[in-house]
Design a protein around this nucleic acid. Structure first.
Lengths: 155, 155
DNA sequence: CAGTCGGCGACTTAAAAAATCGGGAACTTC
DNA sequence: GAAGTTCCCGATTTTTTAAGTCGCCGACTG
């Protein structure tokens, strides 16, 4: 529940790789894939999607590869998620199909509050950047900090 | 991406129903199910799970039914999610299997930052309660408020 | 004591994610 | 300028997970 998809994981992995080892050279998907033991074809597609959104820049040809598109601090996690998994949307109600998703029934008192929750979550992803992921330490530990323990319910 | 499961939707629906119409009587799953046109058996299971966590109390027998277990303001969304979908855990890395989830590789610079993100999300769910869902208005609109528009990327 | 409903587990079905495959275009090097 | 490597993109298959169903047991009511 509420975990990232593997595509997003791969994207974060690749972006971090470029940020640390790809500052002065071009890096291809193949290299990253075998470093982390993940399927190369899938990673390639993910990186293409990231390039499309300008989070990376691609250089074709035999000596080609990828480079970071902007500075890490200007790449939000939300952008990464949207690049890999589409718009970070929200309760299945109002996605185009206004009819069959959430039929006539359910006089939704839920939609408003649910939207608020998801908007807050989106906000977190939007204000956290790749730079935060790269940093070993809190960096912007405010708000909830690290002090709040997880409610780890027994399985 | 980042939507609740239907089980959680059903749970919220049922809890709201109990909070509004079940204050002075017992309500069974059947009634709620046909009101919202959702599968009764599944809703029954969800409500059983909620009762197990004391979010509802159940009274068996022909005239039995359910009632809210506590006041709405003391039921956090996090509890509801955990009741229906298990612990709101976090990147698939460290769930018991320490080995095959995230093999030797991936010298995870990711784990820490990811945990921080998900901890913030869990925090939101933990501090938001059923009362907030019932309220028609913001009630605690701070932080991100309703003013921040969604980045609705084109499909 | 018979009927009804909550409680619980196992099973089946449906949807979504993950991974794979194959063809086409661009650039570099020989 | 031809060959080869790499990026690019669509469609397809496999796997995983959520969603929904079924059947039995036990408790309470009338």
């Amino acid at each position: 529940m509420f975990t990232f998809t593997k595509k997003t994981d791969y994207a974060l992995l690749a972006l971090c790789f470029l940020a640390t080892e790809g500052t002065d050279r071009l890096v291809g998907p193949r290299e990253i894939a075998q470093r982390y033991e993940i399927p190369a074809e899938l990673l390639a597609k993910v990186m293409q999607a990231l390039a499309k959104r300008k989070l990376m820049v691609s250089v074709p040809g035999p000596t080609g590869g990828y480079q970071l598109g902007r500075e890490a601090i200007q790449i939000s996690i939300a952008e990464i998620v949207e690049a890999t998994d589409g718009p970070l949307a929200i309760a299945q109600c109002w996605e185009e199909s206004g009819l069959d998703g959430c039929q006539q029934a359910r006089h939704c008192h839920l939609r408003g509050p649910l939207a608020r929750i998801q908007e807050q979550m989106a906000g977190i992803l939007r204000q956290m950047t790749l730079a935060d992921v790269l940093a070993p330490e809190p960096l912007r530990g405010g708000r909830f900090g690290n002090a709040v323990p997880l409610i780890m319910a027994q399985k």
